[in-house]
Amino acid sequence: MTSRRPLFLVAGAAALAGSALIPIAPLALRDRLPDPLATHWSGAGVPDGHSSFTAWTLVCAATWLVFCACAVAVGLSGWGRRRVRGMAGATLGFGAGVTAAMIAGTLRANLDRDSYRQAADLGPGVILVAIGGAAVIGLIGWLVGSTGADQVDRPPGEAPRLREGVREGQRPVWIGYVRSRWAFLAGGLLAVAGAIGALLVVLLPEPLTPGWPLAGPLLGLSAVGLVGLTLSSAQVTVDARGLAVAFGPLGRPVRRIPLESVSTAWAEQRRPAQVGGWGYRISGQGTTVMLRKGECLVVQYGAGDDRFAVSVDDAERGAALLNSLRERETAA
């Protein structure tokens, strides 16, 4: 049975971190805010609802905790499936965006006002930025949550090995998966933090932040995080077409080696120091996708006997299938 412990750890950490961060900006600006605060506006842009500072802060925290609870509820429906993890991540990301926009927008409208009745109109532009920003952060959350393969409960005992060649008419497929945990965490954190930071600096009033001039670098930081997230994982597939290595939660980009180009394949142990470090490396041993040290699937291909390797579990079975498929094609 798939463990749900990661779900509770992620949701619990998000709930605690968010609850700790939510009061920071409001408390720092409390002396410049009216009490009660304007917390609701009519369609005409006139403040028509208010709350005390304490009640409003608690509502913001409660809103975030509700999104965390919703993410847990989504995750419980099948945490082992990528689709479910992606939906849970999207829920957390969208909730973070909504909560950040709620705080920043309310502070923006109430700052340096003598009464909540004098609160500024948020305007359609601010609302569109808030909704769009929350949607983008939700998309990043979906990408982060979708990283990883579907987790399948396997029966106990030794996994079956390829003992015979591939017969005509058979269409066997071998799929392996590898992920760099540190690259995944660093990329995901940079992507989410950069996007939330950009949303905050745009929505907060100008005396507090420079707005768009700072939003640009933060969005760039988020983009760097997304690139790191994409290159932090790979799905390796061996089938009748050859070898395919698809990167990231979207399965793009893809490195392919056609079956007719393959000379031979084997499994060997490699370390980052042997190939020049982590990531996509080119060295005297050819090209290596090094996301974790240890067992690698190595393919020799092309007229010049080029070599391509990717670190992945159960590489021996992948190499065996690739060789068998190549033998069948050669014999045909």
Rank of each mutant, 00 (worst) to 15 (best):
F8L: 02
A11V: 00
A13V: 15
L16R: 07
G18W: 03
G18L: 07
S19A: 15
A20F: 10
L21G: 12
I22F: 04
P23S: 11
D31Y: 03
R32L: 14
P34M: 07
L37D: 00
A38T: 01
A38R: 03
T39M: 06
H40E: 05
A44L: 12
P47L: 02
H50V: 06
H50E: 15
S52K: 08
T54S: 14
T54D: 12
L58K: 06
V59E: 10
L65T: 09
L65H: 05
V66C: 08
F67D: 08
A69V: 01
A73K: 09
G78H: 12
R83G: 14
A88G: 09
G93C: 00
G93D: 10
F94Y: 10
F94L: 14
F94C: 05
M102G: 10
R108C: 08
N110H: 04
S115I: 02
A120M: 11
D121W: 06
L122Q: 04
I127C: 06
I127Q: 12
A130F: 07
A135D: 05
I137P: 03
I137T: 15
G145E: 08
A149H: 07
V152I: 15
D153T: 14
P156W: 09
G157Y: 08
R161L: 09
R163W: 02
V166R: 09
E168C: 00
G176K: 04
L189G: 10
G194P: 10
A198N: 08
V202R: 07
L204H: 02
P205T: 01
G216E: 06
A223T: 11
V224Q: 10
L229I: 07
T230H: 04
T237S: 12
A240N: 12
A240C: 05
G242T: 07
A244K: 01
F247Y: 14
E260N: 13
V262G: 04
S263E: 14
A265K: 01
A267H: 06
G277Y: 12
W278C: 09
Y280G: 02
Y280N: 14
I282L: 12
S283D: 10
G286M: 08
R292M: 11
C296L: 06
Y301V: 09
G302S: 08
G302C: 08
D306W: 08
S311P: 09
V312L: 02
V312D: 03
D314N: 15
A315R: 06
E327N: 11
R328W: 01
R328G: 11
T330C: 03
A332Q: 14
